[in-house]
Design a protein around this nucleic acid. Structure first.
Lengths: 255, 255
DNA sequence: TCAATAGTGTCTGTGAGACAGTATGCG
DNA sequence: CGCATACTGTCTCACAGACACTATTGA
């Protein structure tokens, strides 16, 4: 029955968890200019923020940032706080996605861990710092991180988080978390492909701008006089700038 | 840093949670025949299994079934166990969807609750029983349950679970959990509409059976000799029976 | 002029959506 | 024959998908 076995609950009667940590998978997309002198689209890479542990257990190993929930806060607040302490940023997309409670996942005791993912702009994590608890903090390409032997069950957590953001990248508008407020269609396409390499749409511009079908996800940016705003950051020919509307698309396999 | 504040962790140093319960939102769809003598589609209703609490806190109030996680099990195992103890069934769709940790959500102490939803056939919960902990166990229409004052934050949990299964009903094939292995298109349509009343597709049969577009979600059932299998349970004219394939549809807002 | 990106023109096949019409079989 | 459900015929309009073509502008 719901939480009622503890009607006569006393701390000595039942074993209780030794802690409820939050772990945060911080994703970012780095963009590095191509060597060629001419204007061209940058090479984008999906990276994850990892810290190198200083103490037992798993000292020296790379791990996800995170920390223990305090009695006064929710697990979401804990994740938000740890993210701020860790990366110095707030107001980013932070989302809970799973719980990890396998016996023995933490040698220190019975720990039930709550896993979040965060999507942040590259500039936000540029000024990261090591803390007392970590000997190093680093952005690593996701594929590289998955090939490493991470602390705890953090490899599993990272893989689950990756699966989740791949799904959400295609079914929601979270791509916006990796983009400036105004962006070109090429930028959007590159962000999607960076997270989901399998995604390939030759007529991407056509579909996204064919006002009827994917209606309302994006809108053209115009200046005060109604002129379309363009960008030539990545190309000689200026490209139309777009922004996401607050339209929430609804998907269905049945119609 | 990840779980490393407790590098020098001792139980007395930090406050730890007083328990990690699991709560389970058990959904079922009941079907009652219409009064009219003729064959016709049954009236379906989405219902949720609630228990009436016997003890403090919230004694007398209705609540979701659930219970405390033991050190030896994962929270998923806990939910599965509680579901078995509560409803006597196993092998049903059981899925984790959120964590609830608001301060003060449980007057007994610091409880971090893990919420699951289960989708079960009506026949599975028919032989439910009250346990020591509950004075009554009942199936209630979801809308009715949401209008009640439930124990703890269970109204919120129920609402979240409902939102989640509405989303999954349209984007995955979980409708199968409410259907027999072989079913007619009308039954499928009714199940979807019972969970998501806003869903309305006039040409539902056309779309679902137009082999190209929603390709592979369903397949016609045929007997050994290759004859299509029909059912006249709900109609004079026999209707083709279908089953779900194991095809997993992929959705995207971009193409 | 070339390179690199940003588009547009045009054609074809598929299918979504609407709605009227036909099919089945029991009471 | 009426009723309730189960389809099918047929039309229109949209658009997905392919691919060749033009546009823009700095180096």
């Amino acid at each position: 029955m719901s939480e009622q076995d503890a009607g006569s609950y006393t701390p000595s009667e039942y074993r209780t968890p030794d802690g409820a940590p939050s772990d945060i998978v911080v994703f970012t997309i780095t963009a590095t200019e191509k060597l060629s002198a001419k204007k061209s689209l940058p090479v984008r890479k999906l990276e994850v923020l990892l810290i190198q542990r200083k103490k037992w257990p798993f000292e020296g190993k790379w791990a996800l940032p995170g920390g223990f929930t305090r009695e006064s806060e929710t697990v979401q607040a804990c994740a938000r706080r740890e993210l701020l302490e860790e990366t110095g940023v707030s107001d980013v997309h932070l989302e809970y996605f799973n719980v990890y409670s396998d016996r023995g996942r933490d040698p220190r005791g019975w720990m039930i861990s709550h896993a979040f993912f965060a999507l942040v702009q590259e500039t936000y994590v540029a000024n990261r710092r090591t803390s007392d608890e970590a000997s190093d903090v680093r952005l690593l390409p996701v594929e590289e991180a998955l090939a490493m032997e991470l602390a705890f069950d953090h490899r599993t957590i990272l893989q689950d988080a990756l699966d989740r953001i791949r799904l959400k990248m295609l079914t929601t508008t979270i791509a916006k978390e990796f983009l400036p407020e105004r962006f070109t269609i090429s930028e959007l396409y590159q962000v999607i492909r960076t997270v989901v390499p399998a995604f390939e749409e030759r007529n991407f511009i056509r579909k996204i701008t064919s006002t009827q079908s994917r209606k309302g996800i994006l809108e053209e940016v115009r200046d005060r006089s109604g002129q379309p705003m363009m960008s030539n950051r990545y190309s000689q020919r200026p490209a139309q700038l777009y922004r996401f509307t607050d339209y929430v698309p609804e998907l269905s396999i049945y119609g």
